[in-house]
Simulated scan of single mutants.
Amino acid sequence: MQLRFPGALLHHHQLLQRLVEREIAGRYRGSVLGWGWSLLTPLLMLAVYTFVFSQVFQARWVDLEEAGPLGFAINLFAGLIVFNLFSECVSQAPTLILNNANYVTKVIFPLDILGVVSVAAACFHAFTSLVILMIFQLLAQGAVPITLLWLPLVWIPLVGGCLALSWVLSALGVFLRDIGQVVGIVLNMMMFLSAVFYPLSALPERWQPILKINPLVVIIEQTRRVAVAGESPSAIYLLAGSAIALLFCELSHRAFQKARRGFADVL
């Protein structure tokens, strides 16, 4: 099957670039700290989660017990970066078309790039959090693993999955207004079922295969592997994950293009 969505998006690359810049700049326009909020927010989240889980509940990272709260915080933050990227994309998707209804009546406007803009903005904030993670590693451990360079490849399935879900959920959100409420509930559940606050190895063996059904668990584990443990990613994950993500993107893009024909009638 020939992939159509990359060519469709590249055709509007200049418009896409301007919309991404506007989305990032507009989020903090008028605020006192501006872009500083993208730094402060993950730091505050890291501090609270680390205190609650490592001090109140006395949680320890199974593979890094000697590292104490610092090791826990680094692993926790690496998982949070992945989950927050996913959550930001998915939570905005159901209202993506509804909030830009004025574009629906403009036949020449490519509605499919709205999902790309949302994912690109989320990736920017994830990159900001990643910079904080590296600074934290330098202060706590004195070095950043060179295997961190694998991260762009490790995140191909994540970004592809977020883009595909953005197209699917944004189209469904036009016809089913309740989809936003469902997505909110599912995200709250997934936060605790995606191995964000614990390693997969901490679970009993009978539960590990069940949690691996959740793609986020695999992505988070691979992210920690290259960003924290200093190990190379799984070759099977890179190949299979990327192929599945591309296929999912293609199918979702085609479904979105078919569904958009009915947007104007509903809106």
Results as ranks from 00 to 15, higher is better:
residue 1 M to V: 10
residue 9 L to P: 05
residue 12 H to F: 00
residue 12 H to T: 03
residue 13 H to F: 15
residue 19 L to Q: 15
residue 21 E to I: 12
residue 21 E to A: 13
residue 29 R to G: 03
residue 29 R to D: 02
residue 30 G to V: 10
residue 30 G to A: 13
residue 31 S to V: 07
residue 32 V to K: 07
residue 33 L to A: 01
residue 36 G to F: 11
residue 36 G to L: 13
residue 38 S to H: 13
residue 39 L to N: 03
residue 40 L to G: 01
residue 42 P to E: 00
residue 43 L to W: 08
residue 45 M to H: 03
residue 45 M to E: 08
residue 45 M to C: 13
residue 47 A to V: 13
residue 49 Y to S: 00
residue 51 F to L: 05
residue 53 F to R: 04
residue 61 W to L: 05
residue 63 D to N: 12
residue 63 D to F: 04
residue 66 E to D: 07
residue 66 E to Q: 04
residue 67 A to E: 12
residue 68 G to I: 10
residue 69 P to M: 00
residue 70 L to P: 00
residue 72 F to K: 10
residue 73 A to N: 02
residue 84 N to F: 09
residue 85 L to G: 14
residue 90 V to I: 10
residue 91 S to L: 05
residue 92 Q to K: 06
residue 93 A to K: 02
residue 100 N to W: 04
residue 100 N to E: 01
residue 101 A to H: 11
residue 103 Y to M: 05
residue 104 V to D: 02
residue 104 V to N: 13
residue 107 V to W: 12
residue 108 I to F: 11
residue 109 F to T: 04
residue 111 L to R: 01
residue 111 L to Y: 11
residue 113 I to K: 00
residue 117 V to N: 14
residue 118 S to R: 01
residue 118 S to V: 11
residue 121 A to C: 01
residue 121 A to G: 09
residue 123 C to W: 00
residue 125 H to E: 11
residue 133 L to W: 06
residue 134 M to W: 09
residue 138 L to T: 09
residue 138 L to R: 09
residue 150 W to D: 01
residue 150 W to K: 04
residue 156 I to E: 01
residue 156 I to M: 12
residue 158 L to Y: 06
residue 159 V to M: 13
residue 162 C to V: 02
residue 166 S to R: 08
residue 166 S to K: 01
residue 166 S to C: 14
residue 169 L to G: 01
residue 174 V to E: 07
residue 175 F to M: 04
residue 177 R to D: 02
residue 178 D to T: 08
residue 180 G to N: 14
residue 182 V to T: 04
residue 187 L to D: 02
residue 191 M to S: 12
residue 192 F to K: 00
residue 192 F to Y: 12
residue 194 S to N: 15
residue 194 S to Y: 08
residue 198 Y to N: 13
residue 199 P to K: 06
residue 202 A to S: 01
residue 206 R to W: 07
residue 206 R to K: 12
residue 208 Q to H: 03
residue 211 L to Q: 13
residue 212 K to H: 12
residue 214 N to V: 13
residue 214 N to P: 15
residue 215 P to K: 02
residue 215 P to W: 04
residue 218 V to F: 09
residue 218 V to T: 15
residue 219 I to Q: 02
residue 220 I to S: 05
residue 221 E to L: 11
residue 222 Q to M: 09
residue 227 A to K: 05
residue 227 A to H: 09
residue 230 G to W: 04
residue 230 G to Y: 14
residue 233 P to G: 07
residue 234 S to P: 08
residue 235 A to C: 07
residue 236 I to Y: 05
residue 237 Y to S: 05
residue 238 L to G: 15
residue 238 L to K: 14
residue 241 G to E: 11
residue 244 I to V: 11
residue 244 I to F: 02
residue 245 A to K: 03
residue 246 L to E: 03
residue 251 L to Q: 08
residue 252 S to P: 06
residue 252 S to M: 12
residue 253 H to W: 15
residue 253 H to Y: 15
residue 255 A to I: 14
residue 255 A to W: 02
residue 257 Q to Y: 07
residue 259 A to T: 12
residue 260 R to Q: 11
residue 263 F to S: 13
residue 263 F to C: 06
residue 264 A to K: 13
residue 265 D to I: 15
